[in-house]
Simulated assay, not measured.
Amino acid sequence: MAQFNFKHVQAFVTVADLGNFRRAAERLNTTQPNISNRISQLEHQLGDRLFDRDAGSVLLTRKGAALLPHGRAILRAVDDMVQANGRADLFDGVLRLGVSELVAQTWLRPFLMRFKEAFPAVDVELTVDLSANLTRALAERDLDLTFQSGPFDIAARRELPLGQSPYVWVVAAGQPGLPDPLTARDLAAQPILTHARGTAPFLQLEQHFRDAGCPARLVPSSNIAACLHLAMDGLGLACLPAAMVADPIAAGRLRRIDYGWTPEDLAFAARWNNDPTPPYIRTAADIAQGLFPPEG
């Protein structure tokens, strides 16, 4: 019987996914020589090369491509065995999680607490960034899982819809009254605090006021929480996700503005590429789905 073991198969699948021995070593918390040795030992036991190596890349051979689904099946079977044993604490490692700012500002904390209860030995390495950047990081396998809003210009292997978050117009509670009914020209005369330039909400706002014949004074920011605080300080109107402004409205620091148009609701999804999918990734996505939509 062949003498290779779980670590050999794990190294094989990880190198195949990442296309790089160094990155595979980082993912598996070991050294590049260890990964190289595991692959060499596996190739020796199987009697064939699994990868073609050159200075710039690592590519599967025909034999490697044929064996990869079987390697994934072995990893999946091991995870299934541990899960069937009912011992979630036996799963360890790091979940590299990327979230958009709305998630970070609303339901991230309860998510992290519930995930820690479910998988106490799995640490979470957190990245908060623009959705477009999260999409690229996920595609490049720098992240294992993202909670982000669309549209997505790069497909993921797995997606779980989380829900939608609408937008509302707000202004500082103490700011002088605005005309009623409110027109596009009334809004365009004020600084409008919103998402970063180039994002879907920014582009929709820009197009809306252009179509109305009154280009707006848009004030974009890559930090949407900064827009929220500037709005509370009376430094402009804001068009923000309802979940972010619910507490300031309840506390009397902001008030809603009645205007008949907003950008499209943000549609959120949990997204991942891992194959096989470790149970803690799928559980994390399920927890997120249970927390969405956030209050407000």
Rank of each mutant, 00 (worst) to 15 (best):
Q190R: 10
L237E: 02
V219K: 11
A212F: 01
R210G: 12
L187A: 01
L187D: 01
P181H: 09
A238S: 09
S222G: 14
A189D: 11
D211W: 05
A188I: 15
H229N: 15
G177R: 13
L237Q: 05
L230P: 02
H195Y: 05
H208C: 02
G234W: 07
A226S: 10
L187Q: 02
L228V: 13
P191S: 15
A189W: 05
A231I: 01
Q204N: 08
G198D: 06
S221P: 09
A226E: 09
I224A: 02
A243I: 14
R217T: 06
S221A: 13
M244Y: 00
A196H: 12
P201Q: 04
T194N: 03
L178C: 07
D180R: 08
T194D: 00
A212I: 01
A225F: 05
A200Q: 09
L187G: 06
A242M: 14
A238Q: 01
A242K: 10
P191L: 12
I192W: 03
M244L: 15
Q204K: 03
L237S: 04
H195P: 00
Q190D: 05
A200W: 08
A216K: 05
A225R: 14
A226D: 12
A231E: 12
S222V: 09
P241L: 06
L237K: 00
P191Y: 04
G177K: 15
D233C: 13
E206D: 14
S221T: 12
D180E: 14
A231V: 15
D186T: 03
A243P: 04
L230H: 11
H208N: 03
S221D: 15
G177N: 14
G177S: 11
R217P: 00
Q207P: 01
D211S: 15
C214K: 03
P215A: 06
A196V: 01
A243L: 14
R210D: 13
H208F: 06
P201E: 13
D180Y: 03
H208E: 01
S221N: 15
L237G: 00
A184K: 04
C227V: 02
C227Q: 07
T199G: 13
L178V: 02
A196F: 04
L228G: 08
P241T: 05
E206Y: 11
L187S: 03
L240Q: 00
D233K: 10
H195N: 05
A242F: 09
A243V: 14
C239F: 03
H195S: 13
P179G: 14
P201S: 09
L182V: 03
L205T: 09
L203T: 08
G198H: 12
S221C: 08
G236A: 14
S222D: 13
A226N: 13
Q190T: 05
A189M: 15
P215V: 09
P220M: 00
L235D: 13
C227T: 14
L203E: 12
A216V: 05
L230C: 12
C227K: 04
